[in-house]
Computed example of a mutant assay.
Amino acid sequence: MKKAIIFDLDGTLWDSSASVCESWNIVFSRYPEITRRLTPADVQGFMGKTLDQIFPIALPDTPDELRRKVLNECVHYELEYIAEHGGRLYPKLRETLVELRRSYALIIVSNCQDGYIQDFLDFADMRGLFGDFESAGGTGLSKGENIKLVIERNSIDKAVYVGDTQGDLDSADFAGIPFIRAAYGFGQMNRPVPEIREFCELPEKAAEII
């Protein structure tokens, strides 16, 4: 039986909010009519959402055409910035993933733009630990649909999704698989679910569930 742990990225494997915040503010500063500046807390509130959901929140008072132009530029520049500056990996990430890989296929599914997961894998030097990944930017599908996609693509018999937001829980429900909350991340849940408070707790929690 082939088992998999499928991961959200932001708030689950790393925190890139400071780098994303800085990269977007650099783009904002190129436009005199854009006076808003983001904080890392603002960015954490965006995490887990699709770009179409983020755009009106990020610049709510900006005309739609300008907003879309500026934020599309943000998305592209973010990839360049993240590739160089990365994010903060959660404690004991690598050693825990190495342990998990002995028993499970490891996969990432995120609502990010295409290229963002690749930036994470290269910055963290973890391409060898993950067997597959998928993003909303890569397929145009919802997170729940992408979870189903990678399960089918990798012939997975049993899987669990690990994430930190309500959207992650909803996506796991959509895909029909159990969920583990990364309680150290950015979000809250609308019902009690199994959770970990540190990433290193995941092997024990995953063994209980799948």
Rank of each mutant, 00 (worst) to 15 (best):
G138W: 02
L149I: 05
I57Q: 11
V160D: 01
Q188G: 08
A83D: 13
A175R: 11
A206R: 10
P192M: 00
I82T: 08
D164K: 00
N154P: 08
L51Y: 09
Y104E: 02
G176P: 12
R88Y: 11
E95K: 11
A105D: 15
E78M: 13
L51H: 09
L66P: 11
L149V: 01
M189H: 04
I180Y: 03
R127K: 13
Y77A: 00
E84G: 02
P60V: 10
T165N: 08
E152D: 11
N154R: 00
L38F: 10
F174T: 11
G187V: 05
R197P: 03
V162G: 02
E65Y: 10
R191Q: 11
F123Q: 10
G137W: 03
F123V: 05
Y104W: 03
K158P: 02
K49P: 00
D15C: 07
D164C: 02
D61A: 13
D119N: 15
V109Y: 01
T12Y: 07
E134W: 07
Q188E: 15
L149P: 02
A18D: 12
R68E: 07
D173M: 13
E201S: 03
R88S: 14
T12Q: 08
S16P: 15
D132A: 15
L149Q: 08
D122N: 14
K2C: 06
P63V: 10
T39P: 12
D173H: 02
M189I: 09
V20E: 00
L13V: 13
N25Q: 07
G128C: 04
R36I: 04
G167C: 09
V162I: 05
Q44A: 00
G187K: 01
P63K: 10
G131M: 09
P32T: 10
L141C: 13
K158M: 11
L202Q: 06
L13Q: 13
N154A: 03
P192D: 01
P91I: 04
T96M: 07
L71M: 14
R68I: 06
Y77G: 12
F55K: 07
T12W: 12
Q44S: 03
L202R: 10
G115R: 13
K3H: 01
Y184V: 02
Q44W: 01
N154Q: 13
G87I: 04
I147Q: 04
I26S: 04
F46H: 07
K158L: 09
D125A: 15
P32A: 14
A207I: 03
G140E: 08
F7G: 02
K3I: 09
A136H: 15
S142V: 08
Y116T: 09
Q166V: 04
E73Y: 08
L202Y: 10
Y116H: 14
I209P: 02
E78I: 09
D52E: 15
A182D: 01
R30E: 14
R88P: 09
E33H: 00
A18Y: 14
D122H: 13
D42N: 06
R30H: 14
Q188W: 06
D114N: 14
P192I: 04
P91V: 06
R127F: 04
D168C: 04
P63F: 12
I151G: 02
F120C: 02
